[in-house]
């Protein structure tokens, strides 16, 4: 089970997720220390392994820096649930073997601190705190296959 950290905001961008002043490294552990720093300086302290970030529309807009995904992965975030995602960020997540869940109305349906469980292949989120089941459109099979293979490069080197 994972705890939800809800940001009731749209357009959370890659500059907020990992500011450019830290882009002089590509080490996920180093990046993780600054994950979400310009949005919520206390994030890394309160995020436990497997926790989930929930946000509004257009999550991950801005730069193509995959460092944003690495910082989130380095911080051991389990998944991101957003009402919608920016294109390059969304693609980068799948390529890095990281789950993204598109859930309309996410910030109304999940409260900060709720305990949730996600079935990615079936497309169901169980909100244990509220006792609700939230359905979402599961990723296409090929994307799930990339994620299960550990990302795009592992996926193509297996072929």
């Amino acid at each position: 089970m994972s705890k939800a950290h809800v940001y009731k905001r749209d357009h959370i961008n890659t500059d907020e997720i990992i500011p450019a002043r830290y882009l002089n490294t590509d080490d996920a552990k180093e990046l993780a220390v600054h994950c979400m720093e310009d949005l919520d300086a206390g994030f890394i302290e309160k995020c436990a392994a497997g926790d989930v970030v929930v946000a509004g529309d257009d999550f991950g807009c801005g730069s193509s820096r995959e460092h944003a995904v690495w910082a989130i992965q380095g911080a051991q975030v389990g998944a991101i649930i957003a009402q919608s995602f920016a294109r390059i960020f969304y693609r980068n997540c799948i390529n890095c073997g990281f789950y993204v869940v598109e859930l309309p109305g996410a910030i109304e349906k999940i409260n900060d601190g709720d305990e949730i469980e996600i079935d990615y292949e079936k497309g169901v989120i169980e909100n244990k705190t509220q006792g609700t089941k939230l359905e979402f459109k599961a990723l296409p099979d090929f994307a799930i296959e990339i994620i299960n293979n550990g990302g795009l490069l592992k996926h193509i080197s297996r072929k």
């Binding site: 193509s64 820096r65 995959e66 390059i88 390529n95 795009l152 193509i156």
Partner: peptide, 12 residues
């Protein structure tokens, strides 16, 4: 625009 993983795949 693409991220680093796509870039690696495209380069290869």
């Amino acid at each position: 625009g693409i991220g680093s993983t796509d870039l690696a795949a495209a380069i290869a």
